[in-house]
Simulated assay, not measured.
Amino acid sequence: MSQTIDKKPRLKTSAMIASIAGEGQLTRSAPFGHALAELARTKTNVIGMTADLGKYTDLHLFAKEFPERYYQMGMAEQLLMGAAAGFAHEGAQPFVTTYAVFATRRAYDFIHQAIAEDNLDVKIVAALPGLTTGYGPSHQAAEDLALMRAMPNMTVIDPCDALEIEQMVPAIAAHNGPVYARLLRGNVPAVLDEYDYTFELGRAKLLRDGRDVLIISSGIMTMRALETAKALQADNVDVAVLHVPTIKPLDTETIIREAQRSGRLVVVAENHTVIGGLGEAVATTLLSAGVTPTYRQIGLPDAFLDAGALPTLHDRYGISTSVMASTIKGWLA
């Protein structure tokens, strides 16, 4: 019996959508790729390395301009990290890209032994951090910050938006030592431009003040925190937002100063499991300093997350603006 085959192209599922920009939100395209190419024009020892993901980490822009300084290692993340260590020993400054799950889970021991132990000048810039993909546990790096925080010599950064990524690239290049940075790729929201923001390695920044609630956040959750603060204004809830892009070393001085101001609920918001990330780092900092405000966490659960469309998943796991606002209002009631 003959069979008719449907030759229509398969539609992409909503789980493939990796952008976290809202409808109509201002974005900039590939800030990391452009910033790295700009850096490499004057810093001749910068090289770009990836494991079959140049296009999907925006490193293809660097490769187009500097093909002789671009290394495609194939689907071999352990080899990628070992080779980066070798280049660093010879005086190069490798910027290494892959997905965060592959860097932190698949190649962890190679980073630990080949890069971190020798305190080598390798910058690992990893895409799809936390819940920024709907592809399920195989691609959702919900525990990457906890893993990299635990590694000696490693600086850990969770940037918020396009502006911060653009500023982060030359800042980490100026820092001598290994860095793990989360990466937002493609069309990345532009959030911090209106706050006269400048990234400084190791420093937290108070983006807005407020008398009722202090949200301490990193990465995309700073965007969500700012949106939540604006949403709660309608209910006469005054929300401060402290952005903490550097998870390690932590700006303990600023965190303690802001958290010890009396009368405010302190909420840590992170796009990461509540185990071992910013929330636990802040809690340890405050308890060690004897600062004990009313304290809550917004983060991903200690669980394997579902696959699906990002807006649905962000609502389900409590990191969307609407759910954050509702949660905080409930805590204040």
Rank of each mutant, 00 (worst) to 15 (best):
I5C: 00
D6N: 07
L11W: 08
S14G: 13
A15K: 15
I17P: 00
I20Y: 10
E23K: 08
R28T: 12
A30V: 01
A30P: 02
G33I: 00
G33N: 01
H34I: 01
H34R: 06
A35T: 01
A40I: 06
A40Y: 00
R41E: 08
T44N: 15
L53H: 09
K55Y: 13
K64A: 12
E65L: 06
F66P: 01
P67T: 12
Y70S: 11
Y70C: 12
M81R: 12
A92S: 14
F95Y: 01
R106G: 05
A107V: 03
D118S: 13
D121A: 11
K123M: 02
V125D: 03
A126I: 02
T133H: 05
Y135I: 13
Y135P: 14
S138C: 13
M151F: 02
M151P: 05
N153H: 11
T155Q: 07
D161M: 00
V169C: 07
P170F: 04
G177K: 14
R182I: 03
L192C: 00
E194C: 05
Y195C: 03
D212S: 13
L214G: 04
I216V: 10
I216A: 12
R224Y: 09
R224G: 09
A225V: 10
T228E: 05
A240M: 08
A259F: 04
G263E: 10
V268R: 11
E270W: 04
N271T: 09
G276T: 04
G277L: 02
E280P: 12
A281L: 11
A283H: 13
T284Q: 12
G290E: 10
V291A: 15
A303H: 02
A303V: 03
A303C: 03
L305Y: 02
Y317R: 11
I319V: 00
T321K: 08
S326M: 11
I328A: 06
K329H: 01
L332Y: 09
A333Q: 15
